[in-house]
Computed example of a mutant assay.
Amino acid sequence: MKNWLLFVVSFCLVVICKGHVTWHQLGTNEYYIYTGVRVNYQAAVSACHSMGATLARIKTEQVQDFLMGKLKLLNPEVTWAVFYIGLKRFNSSSTGFQWNDGTMVTSGYTKWAPNEP
C-alpha cells in the first residue's frame, strides 16, 4: 500500500510515494510531483509555501483528469491513495468547505466520491 500526498506551483502538486521529482504543466499552471516520504497536512502546506506555492485546488474536470492521469502514470499499480489538497472545513455543515483561495466549494466544479468531502 502506498501513501500519497497531493498539493500544487502556481500551484504545487506534491505526491509522496517513492523518491521521484517531476514537473508537469497544464496551461499556465505548473504541477510539482514529489514522491517520497509521507508527511502530514501541515508539512505539505509548509513544503508548498517554501516553493511560493499552495496546495492544489481541483476546480475543473480538466485539472482533475490531468492530475489523476499523471499520478496513474507514475504508479499504475496504485488503486487508492491519500491526497492533501487546498480544501479546508471551516464549519460542520455539509457546505462548510472552502478552497485555499477563499472560494466556497459550492461555487464551481465538484466531483467527489459519494458522501465526500
Rank of each mutant, 00 (worst) to 15 (best):
Y34M: 12
A44V: 12
V63T: 01
F83V: 09
L71H: 02
L67H: 04
K59A: 04
N75P: 09
M1T: 08
D65V: 02
F90L: 10
W80N: 12
K70H: 03
I33R: 05
G96I: 04
W112L: 14
C48P: 03
S92Q: 14
A81I: 14
S92Y: 13
T110W: 06
P76L: 01
Q25R: 08
A56P: 05
M104L: 15
K72N: 13
G96E: 01
T28H: 06
V39H: 14
G96N: 04
Q64C: 12
Y109E: 01
Q25Y: 03
A81M: 13
E77T: 12
Q62Y: 03
M104F: 15
V45D: 05
I85C: 11
Y34G: 08
A56C: 13
H24Y: 13
A44E: 11
T28Q: 08
L55R: 08
I33A: 07
A44N: 13
H24V: 11
K2A: 11
W4T: 08
W80P: 00
T103V: 06
K59G: 01
S107Q: 08
L87M: 05
R57N: 04
K18M: 11
W23P: 00
S93N: 15
S46C: 09
I58R: 03
C48G: 01
P76F: 02
Y31T: 03
A53C: 15
C17R: 14
A53V: 00
F97L: 03
Y32V: 10
V78N: 09
A44M: 11
K88N: 00
C12L: 00
T106G: 07
S107W: 06
K2T: 15
A53D: 07
A53N: 11
N3D: 14
D65S: 08
L87W: 05
A53R: 05
S92V: 07
Q42F: 14
V37L: 12
C12P: 06
C17D: 06
N115S: 15
K72Y: 09
Y41D: 14
N29T: 07
V39F: 00
S94V: 14
Y41M: 12
W99Q: 04
G102N: 02
K59Y: 02
V8F: 12
H49M: 12
A56G: 10
C17E: 13
V105F: 08
V9M: 09
K70I: 07
Q62V: 04
Y31A: 06
K59P: 06
G96R: 01
Y84R: 07
S10E: 01
F83Q: 07
V37G: 13
T103Q: 05
T28Y: 01
D101Q: 03
